[in-house]
């Protein structure tokens, strides 16, 4: 699979039976549909559905439009329902792309107090990638 940002081949990382794709060039992470839920489920946290509901972002998004690494369709710019971080989501529902650091921002700003618990749970899988830079 190719990184939608750098066009490099992405590495597959597997931990505790969950596989993610990431790009060594930009440290962006691709989540296949349902993988975040799977991770949280494995950590024993019932998935807070309100935390990761998305709305289509304002069209003047500064970021370039990117192709979905799975199906090649141009991805939509989306924001968490109550947040401002702009993410890329496949229009066919194949998955979501997070630029480096975006996972942390999204959880922090949209899950409120529950964010820390979710962060803690995801750290098991993503470790350093969630650390504050």
């Amino acid at each position: 699979m190719e990184c939608p940002v750098c066009r490099e081949s992405m590495i597959v990382i597997e931990y505790d039976d969950i596989e993610l794709d990431y790009c060594v060039g930009c440290m962006g992470v691709w989540f296949d549909a349902g993988e975040i839920e799977l991770m949280l489920g494995k950590s024993g946290i019932p998935f807070p559905s309100e935390a990761l509901r998305f709305r289509v972002a304002d069209t003047d998004a500064r970021e370039l439009r990117r192709p979905c690494p799975l199906c090649g369709k141009t991805m939509q710019k989306v924001c968490p329902e109550h947040g401002r971080v702009i993410l890329d989501r496949c229009p066919a529902g194949e998955g979501i792309w997070f630029d480096a650091g975006e996972i942390r921002e999204v959880i922090k700003e949209s899950a409120g107090a529950a964010g820390d618990i979710v962060l803690g749970a995801l750290r098991r899988y993503l470790g350093e990638a969630l650390a504050e830079k």
């Binding site: 992405m10 590495i11 990382i13 993610l20 990431y22 470790g127 990638a129």
Partner: peptide, 23 residues
């Protein structure tokens, strides 16, 4: 060593790989 397994595609061009989990 952090417990993750990294799977490297055949057309990967960089000389090294940074682990997403432990760096």
């Amino acid at each position: 060593p952090c417990g993750a397994a990294l799977k490297v595609p055949p057309d990967y061009r960089r000389t090294d790989i940074v682990c997403l989990r432990c760096g």
